[in-house]
Structure formats: C-alpha cells, structure tokens
C-alpha cells in the first residue's frame, strides 16, 4: 500500500482534525472519573488520531509525528506503570494494587484510591495507544516489493 495522498483537501483536513481528536482522547482519559471514559477508550482515540496522519501523509512526515520504533517500548512503559503502582502499594504494606496505601501525603483513603485509578488509567491509555499504532505499522510495513 502506498502511503500518502496527493489531494490537498485530505492533507489539510487530516492535519486540522488530528490534534482535536488527540485533545478529545486526553479529555476522555482524564475526565473518566466523572463522565463515560477511561484509559481504553481514550487510548483508542489517541491511536486513531495518529493513524489518521499515517493514512493521509507520506512516510517521512508521519515518522516525525510518531516514530514506529517507539511503539513497543512505550507500550511496555504503560504496562510497567500499572505494575509499578501495584508494587508500590505492595511495598507500603498493603495488597497488590491496593491504592489505599499509596505514599501520597495528606489524603484520606478514598482520595488515594481516586488518584490510584487515575495513574493506572494513564498507563492503560499509553499502552493501548502505542500497541494499536504498532499493530497498524507492522501489518502495513514492507509490502511494496511484493504486491499484496
């Protein structure tokens, strides 16, 4: 599949729309406590904004946007954020993923749980975004020599 389009309408529209989709994805992740949303949906929205640029632009441009080598390592960091929050709670004397014992000073247990959920949502969003982009990259990479 050839990357990139020559139509100016597609180039302009994808360039305008992509940051707004990304902003909305951030909103969905960080407002997930009060409205429908959370890490999975926000991560899918962030991935869609990146894949929109990948469909519309040529390869030189979209590699500046999000490099394909960063896909798997950033996904691993997302999983490690989740594990790390669990292990911090374990080290502080609670159960695994028991956010009530996270070492943030001056908060009651319910607030600690609130921020623990926020931390793992960020980890989930990062992992989902990078893994979806990485699957897209791997599926479409290097098929110019053989016409599939």
């Amino acid at each position: 599949m050839k990357h990139g389009s020559s139509s100016p309408i597609i180039l302009l529209l994808s360039r305008v729309l992509s940051p707004y989709i990304m902003l909305f994805g951030m909103y969905v992740i960080f407002h997930g406590h009060y409205s429908p949303g959370g890490g999975f949906q926000g991560g899918a929205l962030l991935a869609s904004s990146i894949i929109l640029i990948r469909i519309a632009m040529e390869e030189k441009v979209h590699q500046l946007h999000f490099n394909k080598d960063y896909g798997i390592p950033l996904g691993a960091i997302g999983v490690l954020i989740f594990f790390g929050v669990g292990f911090i709670a374990l080290i502080m004397g609670g159960y695994f993923l028991d956010y009530g014992l996270l070492p943030f000073p001056g908060m009651i247990t319910a607030e600690l749980r609130f921020y623990g959920i926020l931390l793992i949502e960020v980890g989930v969003g990062l992992a989902v975004m990078t893994i979806l982009v990485s699957i897209y990259d791997n599926l479409l990479e290097e098929d110019d020599d053989e016409s599939i």
Partner: peptide, 10 residues
C-alpha cells in the same frame, strides 16, 4: 465488555 472490545481489536 469495555476490556473485551479492546482485546478483540488486538
């Protein structure tokens, strides 16, 4: 089902 959908995509 929220998690099942994303795992389905993967």
């Amino acid at each position: 089902m929220l998690t099942a959908i994303v795992v389905g995509v993967a």
